[in-house]
């Protein structure tokens, strides 16, 4: 069964950081990359992400995943902006009817860098943080037990549902249900496949809710997670600092944006 998140276990200081700390810095990178006015800022963020990934020993996974998810869209950005950037004056090359514009390329590289920085930060966060740990930490800091459970369960149950859907497909095909062929045939196959999936999940849920109730789920006692997640004064301060930096950055960008409007 394939897990939903690409977490890779490594013995690294980055993996050992508190998930909330990583989350705070991840948000920082996303906000700054999204709003920074200079290309060098975005590029240095991208560089920082790669350096952190190296410290976390996941550089190769990072590059593979970023390429996989961003390659096509980056190429598209370059083609569309390079060729059709509105108000372009400086032509770089002209090959037949196709003209590549300098302004377009500059805009494309800026947009693509922003995108790459954001995607890289997201992937890095997921590579080094187990969803379970993140949600647990959020629960320890006030997220409701029910919501936390639902989030974790849906992430685990999704791959399970896929496996069940495959079994159901086999069972119904064995009853003569044609699932290959025209649109109408495939549409008609929908109910016999979704039906058992939904009803089966409801039956499972009933037993499951009994089972978790029997394990003190509704207990009003404060949850104590057995796996201690590392946290420290330093990390807490770093989180606050990251939050403060984020806030001031956003304020600065808002102010300069508004003043540019007034001017």
């Amino acid at each position: 069964m394939k897990p939903l998140t690409p977490y890779v276990h490594r013995n690294s200081p980055i993996h050992r950081l508190n998930p909330l700390t990583k989350g705070a810095f991840f948000l920082c990178v996303v906000i700054v990359a999204f709003t920074a006015p200079f290309l060098w800022v975005v590029l240095s963020l991208l560089g920082a992400v790669v350096i952190v990934a190296a410290a976390a020993k996941v550089t190769r996974n990072l590059i593979a995943l970023v390429l996989k998810s961003a390659f096509l869209i980056v190429v598209l950005i370059f083609i569309v902006q390079g060729l059709f950037y509105p108000g372009s004056k400086a032509a770089l090359w002209t090959i037949g009817p196709v003209t590549v514009w300098r302004e377009g390329l500059r805009f494309a590289s800026f947009t693509a860098s922003r995108l790459l920085a954001i995607i890289a930060a997201t992937v890095l966060f997921m590579l080094t943080t187990r969803a379970e740990d993140l949600v647990s930490e959020m629960m320890a800091h006030g997220l409701s037990r029910k919501l936390g459970y639902v989030v974790l369960m849906s992430m685990q149950i999704m791959p399970q549902m896929q496996a069940r859907a495959a079994a159901i497909l086999d069972a119904q095909r064995s009853r003569g249900l044609e699932t290959e062929g025209g649109l109408m045939k495939r549409f008609r196959a929908y109910v016999p496949i979704i039906g058992p999936l939904v009803v089966g999940s409801i039956i499972s849920l009933e037993t499951r809710s009994l089972a978790i109730e029997a394990r003190g789920f509704s207990s009003s006692t404060r949850r104590v997670r057995v796996e201690e997640i590392h946290d420290s004064r330093g990390e807490q301060m770093a989180r606050w600092a990251a939050a403060a930096a984020m806030a001031s950055f956003v304020v600065w960008r808002l102010v300069s944006w508004i003043s540019s409007l007034i001017r």
Binding site: E132, L152, M153, Q156, I157, I203, S204, T207, R208, I212
Partner: peptide, 8 residues
């Protein structure tokens, strides 16, 4: 059905 589904 008795597995919580929320643990790894």
């Amino acid at each position: 059905d008795q597995i919580t589904g929320a643990t790894l």
